[in-house]
Nucleic acid binder design. Structure first.
Lengths: 250, 250
DNA sequence: CCAAAAGTGTTGTTTCTACACCCATGA
DNA sequence: TCATGGGTGTAGAAACAACACTTTTGG
């Protein structure tokens, strides 16, 4: 049996949730040389949206964000960080919003869920290959290439933009590829991540020199073979150093 | 007649406010070669705290933050930015909290204000000399040197820490001194701001070269005279460039 | 033999850091 | 004449940007 959607749960357990706040999650993965974002869509509504969660009254906000991630991907103990809080009153297209609310059985337009929300944006960088997408009965969940995102519900396009902008500023502080890439990977994959985020090409050799000088990477001495190419050296992140770096993020 | 405190207003106009959310404001000024923070204190409670505000249901969160600033300093049209949202459940010392609530006449411990709050941290850099402090009837408001802050209510010390950490990361992106300093100032004042934020001394000559190379500063060709010293060149920020830079902050 | 992508190194430019000497002033 | 703080310049080190040739591989 498929589970109920998050929003339905909230409607039916109104009193245990902190009113008027949601956590909106930008979940980013990397596959086939492309950065991807997880989006969800109700069967009865035409626009895709970011996975959303709500905060229980006795629950830390960070925990609430992580449980969105866990519900949708099965991943736990993943580092998520907050990047911005969206508190404009015009975020919400009232008509769209009520359409959705009505569909999930919320007729009461005075219910807080039918009104203005402040959304805290969280971002997670995850290993695509570890993700098991799980959706509720009346929704779909799917990866989208980050530069091929359709027009989303509410201000979700700009939330994604902000998440990327935030990652961009931290690109030389935190080991961004750490969670995105599998255990072993060639440097070219890491470079593509950087190029996608920065929206510019990077010199292969200079990138390599710079990224290796950070000390976060370990040359495994193993090689990946692809048809028609010279074997490529494989690298791994130094887990200890990366975890430490994640602790020190602001 | 002195006005009511913000919290009292909320208690008496519960329905017009967005529940469960506050905006906590770190208002920073510079005077007498020291960075300062504005703190407030209820007469009936022993700890100082950050100025707080609440969001009306039809009000943008950014606007709510600005109106806290305006109420307390008289300044308007000041750039404020959000730096983090604090959503831990243990932020609140329930006993302290109820003491305050009882004093302002809120006996109902089920009122949202008596329970868990999510706080959005905002930061403003202001011109100390333009500030006219205004407090409500039962509170004091006062500048504190930023490195001499007492133990504050709730997690407000760490909120200030986070604000400073955020400024630190943006020190070479945004013209931090722009709003903190008066129209005309010697470079040494700007350097002191940087030194305070970075918590380290900076080489006078290298700082000068670097800060001038950003192009945000204009040498006015005027000089300030102090007893026993060589006259000091005065500078001003290039307002246009600074405003543009503020727009582009993430 | 060719195309594809990887490995490797050099050079000039810019930026950063550290540092020293002289100057104008009021006491 | 002295202490204070400001003005200015240089040299070595480090980081950055631009760039070319060679290697392995499968087709």
């Amino acid at each position: 049996m498929k589970k109920r959607s998050v929003v339905e749960s909230v409607v039916n357990n109104e009193t245990i949730y902190q009113q008027g706040i949601s956590v909106d999650c930008v979940i980013i993965g990397f596959h086939d040389r492309r950065l991807k974002v997880l989006l969800s869509k109700f069967n009865f509504f035409h626009k895709w949206m970011l996975p959303v969660g709500f905060i229980m009254k006795d629950e830390d906000m960070d925990v609430a964000a992580c449980s969105v991630l866990k519900n949708i991907t099965g991943l736990k103990d993943i580092y998520m960080y907050q990047f911005h809080t969206f508190g404009s009153t015009i975020r919400l297209n009232a008509k769209e919003h009520r359409t959705i609310m009505a569909k999930i059985g919320l007729a009461d337009t005075n219910h807080w869920l039918a009104q203005r929300l402040v959304s805290v944006g969280y971002c997670a960088l995850v290993d695509y290959s570890q993700v098991n997408i799980s959706a509720s009965a009346n929704e779909k969940v799917q990866w989208f290439n980050i530069n091929e995102i359709p027009s989303l519900y509410s201000d979700h396009n700009s939330i994604i933009g902000k998440a990327l902008a935030m990652i961009r500023t931290q690109l030389d502080i935190i080991p961004v590829g750490y969670k995105l890439l599998p255990e072993k990977f060639p440097l070219s994959e890491l470079r593509i991540i950087y190029e996608t985020i920065l929206e510019q090409e990077l010199d292969r050799r200079n990138f390599q020199r710079k990224i290796l000088s950070t000390g976060y990477l370990i040359n495994l001495g193993e090689y990946q073979r692809k048809p028609g190419q010279k074997p490529t050296a494989l690298f791994a992140f130094d887990k200890e150093k990366c975890e430490e770096a994640l602790q020190n993020i602001i």
